[in-house]
């Protein structure tokens, strides 16, 4: 088979292609500058997200069975063990819950938690790269969702609503590298800052350098009224603690809500704690 008008070898750009490439680079840099320095492209972002959100909704019905199958492949064979382990953990957690019920201060904190949430399903992740730490949910402003609201999977913190369209919304995952979450150690009550580490969980630094973090400590979001997120949601469990030469304590935390297995989630219906940045 021959392709008469196709180049045998295209080792160099033609003059016209160089001009086109230069123009496109300039346009890309212009977009980048406008978007980084201001909100001039907010409308364009919203329009494309809205259009893609509608398409995700249509595509999701066809794709989701395949996606769940593919997501389940790495866990094939391990589900039995997982169920047994979860049953055991569930029994322990029930016992712990009974203890907490008697604790007046915990009870007071729990009473501040909002009880209404809108159930939603994850339709898609970011359309560009695998490391786009956002997910698109199938609920939007028609369901009462607003920017800044906290999202949970029923167990722990998932993230917060970044953008809302009529029928879908984009959620920035708490696991996003670089994102910060105010946290509280349930054992000591110490406050800390948890930084997202992608699939590795969180890296936590206590605000008080002398604070004692221990392996196994449970962290929750908080404190109420000062955090972007609803207070009291499980953030994760401390898996290791390191103290640097300058005395700073840093802990690694396994997330309560795994960002890799998100499917059904709930958007907590409160007034948003903070406005989204873009």
């Amino acid at each position: 088979m021959t392709f008469p008008r196709r180049p045998e070898r295209a080792r160099r750009l033609t003059r016209r292609q160089r001009l086109a490439a230069t123009a496109l680079v300039a346009v890309a840099l212009l977009f980048l500058t406008i978007d980084v320095t201001g909100s001039g492209l907010r409308g364009a972002h919203g329009g494309v997200r809205g259009a893609l959100g509608a398409l995700y909704r249509g595509t999701d019905g066809l794709i989701s069975p395949v996606r769940r199958f593919v997501q389940g492949v790495p866990d094939a064979g391990a589900n039995r063990d997982t169920i047994d382990r979860l049953r055991s953990e569930n029994a322990q957690l029930r016992a712990r819950l009974a203890q907490y019920a008697a604790d007046a201060s915990a009870s007071e904190a729990l009473s501040r938690l909002p009880t209404t949430s809108v159930p939603a399903r994850v339709m898609a992740l970011g359309p560009g790269l695998g490391f786009d730490w956002t997910v698109t949910l199938d609920v939007g402003s028609h369901n009462g969702v607003q920017n800044g609201q906290t999202v949970t999977d029923g167990v722990g913190l998932v993230g917060r609503v970044l953008h809302t369209n009529a029928i879908s919304c984009t959620v920035l995952l708490a696991a996003d590298p670089g994102s910060g979450v105010g946290a509280r150690d349930t054992r000591t009550g110490e406050l800390a800052l948890a930084t997202g580490q992608g699939t590795s969980g969180f890296r936590v630094s206590p605000l008080d350098p002398a604070a004692q973090l221990s392996v196994g400590d449970q962290l929750v979001t908080g404190p109420a009224g000062e955090s972007t997120y609803v207070a009291g949601l499980a953030l994760g469990t401390v898996t290791s603690v390191h103290t640097s030469a300058d005395g700073m304590t840093v802990a690694q935390v396994r997330p309560a809500a795994s960002p890799t297995t998100l499917d059904l989630v709930g958007v907590i219906m409160t007034e948003p704690g903070a406005e989204a940045s873009r």
Binding site: H45, L52, G128
Partner: peptide, 9 residues
Amino acid sequence: DLGSAHAAG
């Protein structure tokens, strides 16, 4: 880019 959370371009 426009469909994502990061800066366009």
